[in-house]
């Protein structure tokens, strides 16, 4: 009964990294701006749709993979396309922040929720207007799997999953480097810890907030792009359950904590995937039960640092 367990665990790791990429953006935005962005899931869906267009166009320019070398080229093109798709989210995120979110920072939290909910609804229809009402699949999953990876070690496991894990690790590494080592990253952290102090020493919080919101949108979009090039499709309501699951992930990990988001995502991913085949009636409940337990036992999350990026 349990002989497939290692595979399930591997699937969980892959699923966890997808969750991490989405949750990372949410936790950064919340950690710095203090805004729980309900439209985050729609930015993720937006990234998936943009990736459909860009990756679809780019892969149209190169041949379908026939051997290992062409497969590598194909894979590189898909990844570049996904990055480009996520990059489109930078100006989108910046615009949303500057035009809509900025005027209401001093309003009550609940108005920020209402605003981001309104943005969620509007973004849904923007996507419906641009890409239509039906799901879209860019259809590069097969080509990606033509790249030999695990086969080299005699295991039959989709290359796409390996790519997602690798990309997720790079994203995590980059974020840690950014917030730990770069000047901008440190300024962002300083702003998160104490807005007034940051302003007093000459930091333009407006700029920082825009940057952070744009970054959040970028990573949401990148997560969407990674899903879009996988076995799934881009569809209008795809943002809903990842948004809710992202809440779970960042709460388990500790709000604002990047390490926490990674650990939380992997915990949710692996537990869900391992439990599903044996107790499929628990599939939906697992993440929330985890969340309740963590919140009741350790309310600040596993790596909790309130309002700081760590």
């Amino acid at each position: 009964m349990f002989e497939s367990l290692p595979y399930h665990a591997l699937n969980g790791v892959y699923y966890g990294f997808i969750l991490f990429m989405i949750a990372a953006g949410l936790t950064i935005v919340f950690g710095v701006l203090g805004v729980l962005n309900l439209a985050h899931g729609e930015l993720y869906a937006f990234g998936a749709f943009v990736a459909f267009s860009i990756v679809g166009y780019l892969t149209g320019l190169v041949a379908e993979p026939t051997g290992p070398v062409t497969a590598l080229i194909f894979g590189a093109v898909v990844l570049v396309g996904s990055l480009a798709a996520a990059a489109v989210l930078l100006p989108v995120g910046a615009t949303l922040e500057a035009a809509f979110v900025r005027p209401i920072y001093d309003r009550d939290d609940v108005y920020q929720l209402l605003l981001t909910y309104a943005l969620l609804l509007i973004l849904t229809d923007v996507m419906k207007f641009v890409w239509g009402a039906k799901p879209l699949d860019v259809g590069v999953y097969d080509g990606l799997n033509a790249i030999p990876t695990t086969e080299l070690f005699g295991i039959d496991y989709p290359t796409y999953n390996v790519v997602v894990v690798a990309v997720g690790l790079v994203v995590f590494g980059w974020l840690v480097w950014f917030f730990d080592r770069t000047k901008t990253g440190r300024i962002v952290r300083a702003t998160a810890i104490d807005r007034e102090m940051a302003t007093a020493i000459g930091v333009s919080t407006d700029r920082i907030f825009t940057l952070v919101f744009a970054m959040g949108a970028f990573f949401a979009g990148f997560g969407g792009a990674m899903v879009s090039i996988g076995p799934g499709s881009a569809y209008l309501e795809m943002g809903l359950s990842p948004l809710v699951l992202s809440f779970v992930v960042i709460v388990i990990g500790g709000l604002g904590s990047l390490r926490g988001a990674l650990v939380g995502a992997l915990l949710v991913g692996v537990t869900t995937q391992v439990v599903t085949p044996y107790y499929s009636e628990l599939e939906l409940a697992v993440p929330f039960v985890l969340m309740v337990v963590v919140l009741l036992v350790r309310p600040e999350g596993l790596y909790g640092t309130w309002g700081e990026i760590e």
């Binding site: 497939s4 595979y7 699937n11 699923y15 997808i18």
Partner: peptide, 14 residues
């Protein structure tokens, strides 16, 4: 799997 699932690899693996 849930209707509108994101992932079915658990079931395929089984």
């Amino acid at each position: 799997p849930e209707l509108g699932a994101d992932d079915m690899s658990a079931h395929v693996t089984e």
